[in-house]
Design a protein around this nucleic acid. Sequence first.
DNA 1: GTAACGAGTTAGATAAGACTAACATAATAA
DNA 2: TTATTATGTTAGTCTTATCTAACTCGTTAC
Lengths: 218, 218
Amino acid sequence: MNTHTEENYLKALFYLTAERGEVNVNDLSKHLGIQMPTATSMMKKLGEKKLVQYESYKPIKLSDKGKKEASLIIRKHRLTEMFLVEKMGFGWENVHPIAEQVEHVDSPDFFDRMDEMLGFPKMDPHGSPIPDKDGKISWQKFDKLSDCKVGESAKLSAVMHSSDEFLKHLNARELQLGVVVKVISVEPFDGMMVVSYGKRKSETLSSIVCERLLVQRA
Amino acid sequence: MNTHTEENYLKALFYLTAERGEVNVNDLSKHLGIQMPTATSMMKKLGEKKLVQYESYKPIKLSDKGKKEASLIIRKHRLTEMFLVEKMGFGWENVHPIAEQVEHVDSPDFFDRMDEMLGFPKMDPHGSPIPDKDGKISWQKFDKLSDCKVGESAKLSAVMHSSDEFLKHLNARELQLGVVVKVISVEPFDGMMVVSYGKRKSETLSSIVCERLLVQRA
DNA sequence: GTAACGAGTTAGATAAGACTAACATAATAA
DNA sequence: TTATTATGTTAGTCTTATCTAACTCGTTAC
């Protein structure tokens, strides 16, 4: 069994690998808000436990074992988020800090029961895939809304880097997963988009927002 | 804010005080499965934080502040147990170890939501009172089944020292909270009781069990 | 091709929470 | 009342996870 701290390092490595391809000590320490020597010494430790492949001055890689353990923590996190939203009535912008704590609970039964009550969901409230019991993730390919052309319609399917503020921004515009958005116009200079969906016939979204909205084209 | 470890000490002190009146370092260390010096040093620390009144070689007392903090952790524990049983379908014999972990989650909203979903329950699945948001506990006076006389009827209202094995023992006899039990006979030598309830017309209970069953006389 | 800077490591310190060994106090029994 | 036993404390060590300061490696700029 790993400590909570070790679990948090594994999770961070998993996310950073998915996001940036390669992870170095600097990225990792910034992501976790710690100093570099702390990260270095933890990498040595996780290296000894065969959870990462670590050699001085080289990029850090999760081993297969490390990937699996990270996935299983992420599974617990995402199941918890889904449970909080679907069964306990929380808003999708409020569940992260709670799930961040509950994910460390050591009780397969607890999470299996959530899974069952939720009907074995494939996605969390932000559209991120929930790993299965073996830690396997079925990656779905989404397009960014920012890649859609004028006239195209697409279903909002997931959000990237879901922060509190970003999700509140979407809430204020009634942008929920499942909504079908049509691109009315794109500002060539800054990529700002005017879109229509539901009752909203002309909503303007910044390119920053459009980059972070993942969609399935109609 | 206190650490998980400190929270566990506060909880232990609260339970031991309720149970034995006075707590000494030896009791505390045995209860928590640690060595005495570890308990001594933690008592000094909690003393500095004004959570306990501690003087060398004297019994340990929780301060009012310490009592309140302990109650609030117990509140989270018991709400969680109730939630696991009522909303997630766990057996009352399986919820303790999960609640032991979930109780340390720092999120008033999370527990308030449980409370609300449960209809603001006064008792946990074992009949123990759930402290209110101020940490106040409404103690209810129960009799032990072992104090009842032949011919008396009483409603099973709570259990003491609810361990896994004890609860399974009750499950096997369909003894749930709320069941009305009638005392058929008492063995004078060892206090063993023959009782009837529901469909069970003649069930024999050891005095150990009867001592731990708390009832309200009819 | 070397200087400078960013990234990474080593060494040593600290705090929390545990331990053991050794000593001290208090309560109990003879 | 003294000896014995149980309880409690002190001192010192260990591990985990963090830090700072100082040194090293590597890459980019000139």
